[in-house]
């Protein structure tokens, strides 16, 4: 499996990781190796096999429609929510201006 630099840059862009041309060039064979290795899976016959959905038989539990029933997953905690923000102003998170 060979991965070219352009592909590495496209993936890095999708993943929002800034990457230099040198890093992309260095990473290309490395990713190629790993992808080549995992492509070993192609040889497994999976006809009629369902992809795994739950590792231990279990189905989704649903929660009651109650506001702030558990304070750990409820709202009304703006100070906590903003406590670690690199930039927070007037009760908002702030980010560089987005032009839509």
């Amino acid at each position: 499996m060979s991965v070219d630099t352009a592909t590495v840059k496209r993936i890095a862009s999708l993943a929002r990781i800034a990457i230099t041309d040198e890093d992309a060039a260095r990473m290309a064979p490395e990713l190629g190796n790993i992808l080549g290795w995992i492509e070993m899976l192609e040889e497994v016959d999976t006809t009629g096999i369902e992809p795994m959905t739950a590792v231990i038989p279990n189905t989704l539990r649903l929660r009651d429609d109650v506001v702030n029933a558990d304070p750990l997953t409820g709202g009304g905690i703006r100070e906590q929510v903003l406590a670690n923000a690199p930039v927070a102003e007037h009760g908002f998170f702030a980010v560089p201006k987005v032009i839509e």
Partner: peptide, 23 residues
């Protein structure tokens, strides 16, 4: 945006900020 470090190169927009921070 909400926690941890932020890397904001001069003149960077939101998506550039993401990419720089994560890099």
């Amino acid at each position: 945006v909400r926690y941890g470090i932020r890397d904001l190169p001069t003149g960077a927009g939101l998506q550039d900020m993401y990419a720089a921070t994560r890099a």
